[in-house]
């Protein structure tokens, strides 16, 4: 499965996803509960050490915050104008730690393991009348059809390229959606035909 998992066999890789999620939740709460910049800086150091412990180079930690750099700049400007640059720095460090920790969870946990975890977590709810079988099926179907529909969008794009419409959003999405909806009938027949 195409995911953001990074191969490895550290303690973090082998730990059950549930513990990692719990750890992330506790870390996030602590970061906001303890309103102290030194605490946040210490937490940053621990986080970077965790990346090293998982065998991940520091540029993977940097990659977690790179997409929001412009937000950091925005925060810094706003805080420098309305409060002080000190508060800005504090907010940015706390924010960066949170993003890195979340990224660490994603990098060390396979999507399939997380999905198994979700399904195991939902199972007790089936006694309350929730159709967990349906939820499992929906998850699998989505994973199956993401690449199929991405190919459909790509095919439509190539077809429209021939007509010079490859940058026209309507010309791309309308045929893709029509095909998606037409597929739905056969797919649900196929599922029923196999005794679902």
């Amino acid at each position: 499965m195409l995911d953001l998992y990074s191969e490895g066999n550290s303690r973090l890789h082998t730990m059950k996803p549930g513990w990692k999620i719990l750890g992330l939740a506790i870390s996030g709460s602590l970061l906001f509960a303890v309103d102290n910049i030194l605490f946040s800086i210490a937490f940053l150091a621990v986080t970077l050490a965790l990346f090293a412990a998982a065998g991940l180079p520091l540029r993977r930690a940097w990659a977690q915050i790179r997409p929001v750099i412009w937000i950091f700049v925005l925060i810094m400007i706003a805080q420098a104008l309305f409060n002080s640059w000190w508060v800005g720095l504090f907010v940015i460090i706390r924010f960066a730690v949170l993003l890195m920790l979340a990224g660490l969870l994603t990098l060390t946990t396979r999507s399939s393991e997380m999905i198994d975890g979700i399904e195991a977590g939902l199972r007790p709810l089936s006694r309350l009348g929730l159709r967990t079988r349906g939820i499992s099926l929906a998850i699998s179907l989505t994973l199956r059809f993401i690449p199929v529909l991405a190919s459909v969008v790509r095919e439509v794009r190539e077809a429209q390229y021939a007509r010079g419409l490859e940058r026209n959003i309507l010309a791309l999405t309308i045929p893709a959606i029509v095909r998606t909806l037409k597929m739905s009938e056969d797919i649900s027949d196929a599922i029923d035909a196999r005794g679902f």
């Binding site: 099926l137 929906a138 179907l141 993401i146």
Partner: peptide, 9 residues
């Protein structure tokens, strides 16, 4: 499932 996949696609 198809609309979730479509949103991704």
């Amino acid at each position: 499932a198809l609309f979730a996949a479509l949103t991704a696609a």
